[in-house]
Amino acid sequence: MMLAAHGVGVTLGGARILDGVDLAVEAGEMVALVGPNGAGKSTLLAALAGDLVPDDGVVTLDGRPLAAQAARDLARRRAVLLQHQSLAFGFHVIDVVRMGRSPWRRTDREDDDDLVVERSLERADVTELAHRLFPTLSGGEQARSSFARVLAQETPVLLLDEPTASLDIRHQEALLTIARDAARAGVAVVVVLHDLSLAAAYADRVCVLAHGRVRADGPPTEVLTGPLLTEVYDHPVQVIDHEGSLVVVPVRKEAPCVPA
């Protein structure tokens, strides 16, 4: 077992955000966290990343509680892509990606730095941006550059919080393909997604959160069903099998506009 949450409960400002969440992620597995706004997805990811210590329960990485592990050791085991990127000063993209190598300073792996940085830039399709200033990039370009930094960290666990939110279709597919390839190569991947069709297409397992609890957890075909999603999202949802891939669409009351 790689990364596991045991009975995790989090209370923020008097509100119960997470309650009794159990989730285990194995090496080589890609798990999508989905659920409506305020279901606790980002909070669960923050708990899995070690950013917040749960009020109840414990999160373990390789069997040891996160809170007991030093920042440097954690950084060598897991990398995190946050939803919002920010950078206080005008560093070049290549410098930002190189920051992902800092956990490996003074280790043998430091020798690979240049190679890994170059490969990470290529994988995230930001080689062209390497010598641009990070704060001058568009939101999507910043997200991809940050993804390159996360890849450069070369960790066995990847946590991605809505990585596709600001990306165009091509880069959404490219990013999730890289994440899935990483999982195939033995990395444990947890990704928060809003687009249920993307979750269905790329995740090995989908974990549906609602009101801070795990509502369902299993392979996409079992979990992503019309009745369950309709209940969780409080809106009629339809799941269509389109040439072998699941497509999740909301049911709209009015028929789409058809030109006369």
Partner: peptide
């Protein structure tokens, strides 16, 4: 410069 959370993620105390 990455911000507190991201700095911690790359191993800074």
């Amino acid at each position: 410069a990455l911000g507190d959370r991201a700095a911690r993620h790359v191993g800074v105390d």
